[in-house]
């Protein structure tokens, strides 16, 4: 188990999440893709911490990343709920006002 190999696993997780975030039409599925990407960041952060500088600072940074994931989740659900209530849909293609 080396840093490089753990980072390759994190890269695979990140790529899968990116594919989902870019390709999915349902808002909640897009959120799942973003969650997978943050999951990869947590793994990579933990690996960097363990293999380079195992000081408490790295753990605090990981706590902040986990908090960011919580914020993303809460706001994503709120937006999905709002979209569903206003439009009766949960598809990203139906919320494209900013394109105009």
């Amino acid at each position: 188990m080396t840093l490089s190999l753990v980072l390759v696993v994190a890269a695979a997780l990140f790529a899968v999440g990116l594919w989902g975030a870019l390709s999915q039409q349902v808002v909640v599925m897009v959120m799942m893709g973003i969650e997978l990407m943050i999951n990869a960041v947590i793994l990579a952060g933990g690996a960097f911490w363990w293999f380079t500088t195992p000081s408490p600072d790295g753990q605090v940074l990981l706590l902040v990343v986990i908090a960011a994931m919580t914020v993303e989740m809460a706001m994503g659900f709120a937006v999905a709920l709002l979209l569903h209530r206003r439009r009766g849909t949960d598809m990203t293609d139906m919320a494209s006002e900013l394109k105009r």
Partner: peptide, 9 residues
């Protein structure tokens, strides 16, 4: 982790 991530989609 990776297999379950793929399975999500």
């Amino acid at each position: 982790a990776v297999a379950a991530g793929v399975e999500v989609f």
